[in-house]
């Protein structure tokens, strides 16, 4: 009997390390809950500090530009005023936007939305296909890495030859440049799906679409968004770049070259300011979507 007592201690000892492991695994989701984005930049004193740095930078720019007095480097107050005159002094019923704002900004945004949309959908779809199969991943990876390594603006001259100047060429260059980061990141995310969860899906006999909806996409979502953020900034770059080419009649890039040809440096700077603000707003919007989708505590691979 005492022997039985002794015997039963063996599994007891073996059991001791397991609670620690369980604590670890059950905390993993909690720790990554604020995952990519949330709490990091929410602290109020950080916000104040950031505002302060921004104001200081603007003040320094203003003082330096005033002191120098060059026409090529106008002070920010005048740039902001020109931006206001050009785009934001419209009637109330147009949300203060001028007709120039509609002519310059909307076509640009439309082309960018189309290009980015195509890149996002196509990239996610192709990424799932590539990431699902070990074979497809191994075969496609070198090509994908190559495609990603080509500097996107270098493709535009090729597309100009193929598609001629105009909106289709512009949308294609945006989509073709922005698709790779989403594709590669989605494939990587899908490929790294927890193998135990794949077993679970098999045991629950989920169909292919349910597997996609309830397992593969949610578990790859952090990676997908990492890809989308890269793609978004590429889209903005390609949007401007494709509008700098001859044959364009509208858009922010066109405003830029047009103002430059008229030596209207103030408008050039205003367009740059607008692009910066636009890029920042778009990125913030994407982050908000990401936070909404991923913020509910989940494991990141």
């Amino acid at each position: 009997m005492s022997e039985g007592q002794k015997d039963s201690r063996a599994p007891d000892d073996a059991r001791t390390p397991t609670p620690a492991r369980s604590a670890l695994s059950s905390h993993r989701p909690d720790r990554s809950a604020p995952s990519a984005t949330s709490a990091r930049d929410a602290h109020p004193s950080h916000l104040l500090l950031r505002l302060l740095v921004l104001l200081l930078a603007l003040a320094a720019w203003q003082l330096a530009a005033d002191a120098h007095g060059s026409v090529y480097f106008p002070p920010p107050s005048r740039i902001a005023h020109r931006a206001y005159e050009l785009w934001f002094s419209g009637p109330v019923r147009h949300l203060f936007l001028t007709s120039a704002a509609f002519e310059d900004v909307l076509p640009s945004l439309g082309r960018m939305a189309a290009g980015f949309g195509i890149a996002a959908l196509g990239g996610i779809a192709a990424g799932v296909v590539v990431g699902r199969s070990r074979w497809a991943y191994a075969v496609c990876n070198p090509v994908l890495q190559f495609a990603r390594a080509v500097p996107p603006p270098a493709l535009v001259p090729v597309l100009v030859v193929v598609l001629d100047f105009g909106t289709p060429m512009q949308i294609t260059s945006i989509a073709f440049s922005a698709v790779w980061p989403v594709l590669i990141n989605t494939a990587e995310g899908v490929r790294n799906t927890d193998p135990l969860r794949i077993d679970v899906a098999a045991v629950l006999r989920l169909g292919p679409l349910e597997r996609l909806r309830f397992l593969l996409l949610p578990s790859a979502l952090p990676r997908i968004f990492a890809g989308l953020r890269l793609s978004l900034s590429l889209s903005l770059i390609l949007m401007v770049f494709s509008e700098l080419l001859p044959g364009t009649a509208d858009g922010i890039g066109f405003t830029l070259t047009d103002a430059q040809s008229r030596s209207d440096l103030l408008t050039v700077w205003a367009a740059l300011l607008l692009l910066g603000v636009l890029g920042h707003l778009l990125n913030t919007a994407l982050l908000a979507v990401e936070r909404r989708l991923i913020g509910r505590g989940r494991t990141t691979p």
């Binding site: 989701p29 135990l196 969860r197 679970v200 309830f214 949610p218 979502l221 505590g297 989940r298 494991t299």
Partner: peptide, 8 residues
Amino acid sequence: YGRSLFPW
């Protein structure tokens, strides 16, 4: 269980 359940 931490991995077998779907956290999302």
